[in-house]
Amino acid sequence: MRVSFQDAKHLISLVGLFAAAVGVFVILRAAVVPAGFGKYGHYRAGAIDDNRARAVKFAGQGECVYCHDAQLQVRDSGRHKTISCEACHGPQAKHVASDGKEKPAKPDVIPLCLNCHEKDAAKPAFLPQVVKADHYTGTTCSDCHQPHNPKM
């Protein structure tokens, strides 16, 4: 049987070219693909940390109990017991971080109450609802209803 690769030297330049192309590919890929890409899947692993890195604005109910126990006891004895403080008082992470020095703004009472309690056919029956024109008698909701425990 004759040797198949008797003219093998013709192939050397081709092999060299192929090796060079692979080299260029590896270098280019290293330069273009960002660090951590493919660690967990077809994405940059650092993106998970980017999403985690943002600042929290709502401190969470767990923070409120440290200082405002009295208000929470009032809330827990009434029908507003499922509502977290920040649902009405807004995001308070700054208030917590500054040890209470950063004061939250007082809520705008009438629109705040009406967000939930304005009469609407789509609202579930368990929710007390009022038609503002029929119910409202002049001043403001909190004159009659204590907002933390709203029974009369």
Binding site: K57, F58, Q61, H80, T82, I83, S84, E86, A87
Partner: peptide, 9 residues
């Protein structure tokens, strides 16, 4: 944040 603020759970 949405679950924190939801009044009815």
């Amino acid at each position: 944040a949405c679950c924190e603020a939801c009044p009815t759970g």
